[in-house]
Write a protein that binds this DNA or RNA. Structure first.
Lengths: 218, 218
DNA sequence: AGAAAAAGTTTCCAATACGAAAAATAATTG
DNA sequence: CAATTATTTTTCGTATTGGAAACTTTTTCT
């Protein structure tokens, strides 16, 4: 069901420090002239990563969607003027058009994460699905967590970190354990908001694993 | 004539550690889409820095010189295909076309420094003119030095550094002072070669300042 | 599954880039 | 300083790009 090399995993007691995606982000070499750079493929990757349709991209850049389509399909070689429009409209730097796209700043962007399509991050106590991982430097880190933990002992110690946290129970029933407070049961639909520097934990109190939405300030 | 804040200058006793050009190299921000990037101006800078004519560049890149001319003069917006040819032919990375050019590797290149057009570097003892500063990572560092110094005392201590040194007297007469050796007078046309880790100095022994060509291994 | 909407591709023509050669400048040389 | 050569710019025909709209494919909704 979940990871069994318990000891080493216990250090990581379900808390998320940084989005793994930021650390994992593949390091691409900067483009050398020898490589067969496919500007079309790259542009498409950028556009789809932004979750823009050709029409959206057209509106942003002022370049006809037909042109965009042809560029993406390597049917034409865009002029530098077009490259500039693309860069400006998509708010990227031109050299970015020659390297595989990475995460993007959140400003002016959106990132839709479909059910189950988020980035998985497993611990012994929780099964996290990170949301909106395409965007970096976000003010909030949203993720869904399936709660395997059943008791304080499953963690070993309180979870503590900077910032504040909000959670909403999506499925099942959980107990919110909070330092200095009495445990509190939260049913589906209930939510909580708390200072994350105060020790806190969530354990499932129903038979099934509970599912919660979690949002942490970064 | 030369710098007068003597004390701080004495530390720098005429020896050249690195080409100042490498340290001085202006730090340009990477291009943001907002800036009005002038690909023509940049291309021209690169080409002239390589000391290539339009025809040379045309041969290297396979792009017609007329096209190159028009690009440089911003009369046309080159297609991406052309940008690729330029990058490949000039052996640069495409993003380089969007930033002010810096020094270039020496491989396959040449750099002519016209009389007096080298990069000036003044000390209390010498007046250096660095040569071939367009190229980086050179095996040899050539420079001309006008010798102001007249005695060992003008330095304070031996000059020492890794590598070997060759010098040729271009004008005037100098004394080559070398650790473990007797001083030796060198007239115009005379030359010397020595291990630079051994203390060494050159002082002018004629009435006028002497001029020498100096080449150091790096 | 069929209709409607959305997204992507292709067509066609005007606008523009590309290259060869001619014309104009700039640099050299006697 | 005129003549020559080297270098850059302009001209002009051809090839290619870029955009509006038509068309096709994919997705969504009932």
């Amino acid at each position: 069901m979940f990871n069994t090399n318990a000891r080493s995993d216990m250090k990581d007691n379900g808390n998320i420090d940084v989005y793994p995606s930021e650390a994992v982000a593949q390091q691409e070499d900067s483009f050398t002239a020898e490589d067969p750079v496919n500007i079309g493929k790259i542009l498409k990757k950028i556009r789809t990563q932004y979750q823009l349709t050709l029409e959206d991209a057209s509106k942003r850049t002022g370049v006809a969607k037909s042109t965009l389509s042809k560029i993406e399909n390597e049917q034409i070689s865009p002029t530098f003027a077009i490259l500039q429009k693309l860069a400006k409209g998509l708010d990227i730097e031109i050299p970015q058009l020659f390297v595989e796209p990475k995460q993007q700043q959140a400003t002016g962007r959106r990132d839709i994460t479909e059910q189950g399509k988020g980035q998985q991050h497993l611990t012994t106590t929780y099964e996290h699905e990170l949301l909106a991982t395409q965007l970096s430097s976000k003010k909030m880190l949203p993720y869904k967590s399936r709660v395997h933990a059943r008791s304080f002992e499953d963690f070993g110690d309180w979870v503590r970190h900077d910032g504040e946290e909000f959670l909403l129970v999506l499925e099942g029933e959980v107990q919110l354990l909070t330092e200095f407070y009495q445990p509190r049961t939260l049913k589906t639909g209930d939510s909580a908001y708390y200072d994350a520097s105060m020790g806190h934990l969530v354990v499932s109190s129903s038979k099934e694993d509970a599912l919660i939405l979690w949002i942490t300030t970064s």
